[in-house]
Write a protein that binds this DNA or RNA. Sequence first.
DNA 1: AACCCGAATACCGTATACAGTTTGAACCGA
DNA 2: TCGGTTCAAACTGTATACGGTATTCGGGTT
Lengths: 250, 250
Amino acid sequence: MARRLSVQPDGPVRLAKPDSLSERIYADLRERLQHCDIGPDDRIVDTEIAVAYGTSRMPVREALLRLANEGYLVGTTRGFMVPRLSLEDIGDIFEVRRLLEPRAAANAARDLDAQTAKALKAAIEEARAAARADDVDRLIAANIRFRAAWLGAVRNARLANTIARFVDHVQTVRLGTLRDPVTRKVVADGLEGLYDAFVRRDPVAAADRMSTFMAAAEQAFFSVRKAELEREDGSPPPSSRNAALAEDRA
Amino acid sequence: MARRLSVQPDGPVRLAKPDSLSERIYADLRERLQHCDIGPDDRIVDTEIAVAYGTSRMPVREALLRLANEGYLVGTTRGFMVPRLSLEDIGDIFEVRRLLEPRAAANAARDLDAQTAKALKAAIEEARAAARADDVDRLIAANIRFRAAWLGAVRNARLANTIARFVDHVQTVRLGTLRDPVTRKVVADGLEGLYDAFVRRDPVAAADRMSTFMAAAEQAFFSVRKAELEREDGSPPPSSRNAALAEDRA
DNA sequence: AACCCGAATACCGTATACAGTTTGAACCGA
DNA sequence: TCGGTTCAAACTGTATACGGTATTCGGGTT
């Protein structure tokens, strides 16, 4: 129970004092990354951000290192950047998401409480309104809220956090996907189907719909990113960040 | 290919200069955590480690924060500790592992190259030797090598790293499990079965055997940890660190 | 005009310093 | 002997400082 409560508010791990400067800056930057307020073309340098927050480099540096460690940023020799995802990256991320999210959705459907149901309802209504208004930014925000809501019902915090992180990583591309009206329809339908399964507390349906939604999303992300890359035709960035993101274990 | 190469050596993300002090200290501490050289009873304080390495607090602090962020450590008000896993924690970790590892093993079996096969062979022979000699430490080391080897054949770096992290988290308990002769037999058999599937490059068998191995392992870990907790009878630590590890997303 | 080379610059990693806060313990009273 | 109070030590988080390195820009050469 204490666990559930602390899952609600926001960031991954509360490493130390929750109200420390590093924590606040981290949370702030992460939110901006989720909403694509910071894009792959912005150079991110600690000194710069430090003056913006009126602090020294250290807390900013800690926040940036943490974001880089979590895959939100990649470190270059000169500052940080939002990674430009290759098609392989997208495939990799979705391979993990396909494995995790259907099960997580089933768990959420099983354990859904009234409060979460309410949050889910608010999110889907916001999404509908945004769709009617053709407001992409608002649709993104509603999407984030919807996801946060159902992930909040997942009791397994490690599972939920892992999912959240990988979803965030493809967020950059999502902005592109939601510009396309067809994709927007796919997302809207997927959300409705999921919402239905959740409120009916039907784990099987939730898992199934998450699976199909997942497949559609991967397709959409993939083709949007492919078009983006082809528009840049040459091939300046596509492979560079691959090495930087490559990870390993002992 | 550049990707495969950089997957080989060791740590999660190369945030900056690969040979920086923070990196080295991080890698060093992580390895010691993997091998249970640092246990749940040790208090971990940056100043202390700093003098041991002959550096200032800063690089150590960065390494510790990173380990905490990855779940290897938990921050207390006074230094860091290795988390004492509750039974729920173990259940949570294995829920994720059950979802990811069978698929990853299948991929590894499909993509296995000669070099990895050799590493795998060396690891399993080491494990056999360790089992014959009843050398628990050596068996642990062989286990780690075996896992590192097959994970090295997983092309999807994000998948492989996620798995590696969660496996490491239950490492503390593994020391306890391998003390039990029955469990040792289970592990030995599981490893043999996996090895067989890998060298036959049979993805289906690899996935199946990983699934059954996973179930057996969870059972073993669970009962060992339960016995440990009951031996401590009262209930001083079991819930405390739960809150500290609780994570969330916005 | 293109290229190469060197100096200035920008940024990173680490060290040192300091203030705030928590912990543990000694000390005192019952 | 035990419980409460105060004080010192310990540890964290942030600031500032400094050396090293890589990048970039300007000047000189072919």
